[in-house]
Design a protein around this nucleic acid. Structure first.
Length: 185
DNA sequence: CGTCTTTGACCTGCGC
DNA sequence: GCGCAGGTCAAAGACG
């Protein structure tokens, strides 16, 4: 496949898709969550809020699942730099946010008829993970959870370093302060 | 040929 | 201690 910038035709959210008309994208960020260490939820949004249960897809303990690696290296809680989860209304489960992701797992979760997909950033040295699943109660919405912070620039942002980003900015550019100020009218 | 997706198995944490 | 649920690994196949 050759690590194309837009590896799949359905990567409609690719910023490098020259034939893409942003106005045709069925995408909207309906909700976002800033998930810090304690799975804190930014409730500054006046929209319908997602509970942590929503994001964790029925797991009351949130990210209480297997936070380990096969080699026994347990991921310390403090190592989790940042978690971001947001809900988007989209027909596509995969939205190209400017980074290249490699799918490494798919799991059907309890309390949800829709499987959860696991992605890793395919950039070497970057261990950011992403989980994508459709909302149980409204399959039109896709819940995307990012785990960690990229240690590299988005290829998209680099490419358009001298231009306005065509698409909605990746979550990495959403600073909590910005979110707070932007959402509080 | 290189990379990605799929998928089943395995591992670990947590609740009972 | 056991079972369940979630997260990850890795081999095999698919694709460009």
């Amino acid at each position: 496949m050759g690590y194309a910038e837009n590896p799949k035709p359905n990567y409609n959210f690719s910023c490098t898709d020259e034939g893409l008309d942003p106005s045709t994208i069925e995408f909207q960020v309906s909700d976002y969550l800033m998930l810090d260490d304690g799975f804190a939820v930014d409730d500054s949004s006046s929209q319908t809020m997602l509970s942590s249960e929503h994001v964790a897809s029925g797991s009351p303990a949130g990210y209480s699942g297997a936070t380990k690696h096969k080699n026994g290296v347990k991921k310390n809680k403090t190592e989790v730099e940042q978690r971001i989860a947001f809900r988007t209304k989209s027909d596509l489960e995969i939205m190209d946010d400017g980074f290249k992701w490699r799918k490494y797992g798919k799991k059907s979760v309890k309390n949800s008829p829709n499987p959860r997909n696991y992605y890793k950033c395919s950039s070497s040295g970057c261990s950011v993970k992403k989980r994508v699943e459709r909302e149980r109660e409204d399959p039109r919405y896709v819940i995307t959870s990012y785990d960690g912070v990229h240690n590299h620039e988005s290829p998209c942002m680099v490419y358009y370093s001298n231009q306005m980003p065509l698409m909605a900015p990746s979550p990495w550019t959403w600073q909590p302060s910005t979110l707070q100020s932007s959402s509080s009218s």
